[in-house]
Amino acid sequence: MIEGFARVVAEEGGVVWLEPEQTASCGTCMSASACGHNADHGRRLAARRFPLANDHDLAVGERVVIGIAEGELLRASATAYGLPLVTMLGAGITAQFLGAGDGIAAAATLGGLAGGLLLARLRANRLSRQGALTPRFLRRAGFGGCGG
């Protein structure tokens, strides 16, 4: 299980909205305020808010530990990135193999990318219906402090 921290930012009926805490690949430094990792930080986090059934009486401001199964992350990566890459390269190489010039090969590659994204969408919808790809509540993490 891959774990991460999230904060409860709103509560509506039986549902709480969670905002995941962003971690950086570095330990952050004195130049953090001018670093690309922190650019648009608030907007990015707001965009990644997600709802969760409030089965554990969570309150606004509370920090929780959420988790997602390792297999689900791999399936998500393969769907979002692997599928479009395979169709994109397949279409481009096939076009070039058939004797097409750079322009036609580029058009075929873009067509393959669009087709791959369409397939990814269909597969992601199917996985979502099966309940995969959604982070789950694991335990409370306590108030305040910085996550990571």
């Binding site: 995941p20 965009a47 990644r48 997600f50 997602i68 689900e72 992350l73 998500a76 769907t79 979002a80 994204l117 990814a120 969408r121 992601a124 919808n125 996985l127 979502s128 790809l133 959604t134 982070p135």
Partner: peptide
């Protein structure tokens, strides 16, 4: 394509 994928 998928908000669920984006969250993950």
């Amino acid at each position: 394509v998928s908000p669920a994928l984006f969250q993950t």
